[in-house]
Design a protein around this nucleic acid. Structure first.
Lengths: 117, 117
DNA sequence: GGCATACTCAACCGATCGGTTGACAATGGC
DNA sequence: GCCATTGTCAACCGATCGGTTGAGTATGCC
């Protein structure tokens, strides 16, 4: 748990790794494609991906000779919850916030008649 | 900005520093008192406090020969905002969330008789 | 089979990190 | 004035970090 936070925050402390996460936000990617925009060796990127995977921030699945990298947003939640203890929401009504989330995250019946787009 | 995130996440990646932040959540503290619970030299703790201060997570004010350490929760907001892009609130209506925050963070009428800080 | 593609591993490098010790500076109490 | 308290600085130490290169392993295509 504490160890998790060590790994997650350490992983997030590097700008290359944050950039990789931002790329994976758009879509899953192969290792080679992740590496393409960076002026860095493929092995270097592979190391970064290993660190992100160890922290649980991404998962990697091999299909054929291609290893696909996928963002795992849940891992950030633990860190985010820890951070939120430090005053970010101290001024707001947490009960109301939870009710707000409940409504927002509920299966959305109302959207059945919402026009698509 | 990117540099800020480097410093903040790196500062948060150490368990001793996170423990210090948790202590400061309760109250402002002198350097010696911060150091007390740890099996570490005062100089070691002083270094950690320097790292937290550089990251903007705490501020330090010298009064007499005592240096008081104070949590600065705002610094975490930047990092928290960055993290929230990664799916934690992806399913909720961000406009509604902003309106919710506006209401919750609005100056509260009930506090009108609070003495100015 | 042969070859290009897609990675990983091991070894190495300099820089930084987390921690120590010892000396030092500044302040406050008696 | 003297001394304890409070805290920092500089130097050092081993470990880890971010990156490289070179070799090696699967896999897929022709």
């Amino acid at each position: 748990m504490e160890r998790d936070l060590d790994l997650i925050f350490a992983a997030l402390a590097d700008p290359t790794r944050r950039a990789i996460l931002a790329m994976l936000l758009e879509d899953d990617m192969a290792v080679t494609d992740v590496a393409a925009p960076f002026a860095m060796s493929l092995a270097g990127i592979s190391k970064h991906l290993g660190i992100l995977a160890t922290a649980g921030l991404i998962s990697q699945e091999r299909r054929g000779r291609v290893k696909w990298c996928k963002l795992e947003p849940d891992a950030m939640r633990e860190a985010s919850i820890w951070m939120q203890a430090f005053g970010q929401f101290e001024a707001i009504n947490l009960d109301a916030f939870e009710r707000f989330l409940e409504v927002e995250l509920a299966p959305q019946q109302d959207d059945a008649n919402t026009p698509p787009g």
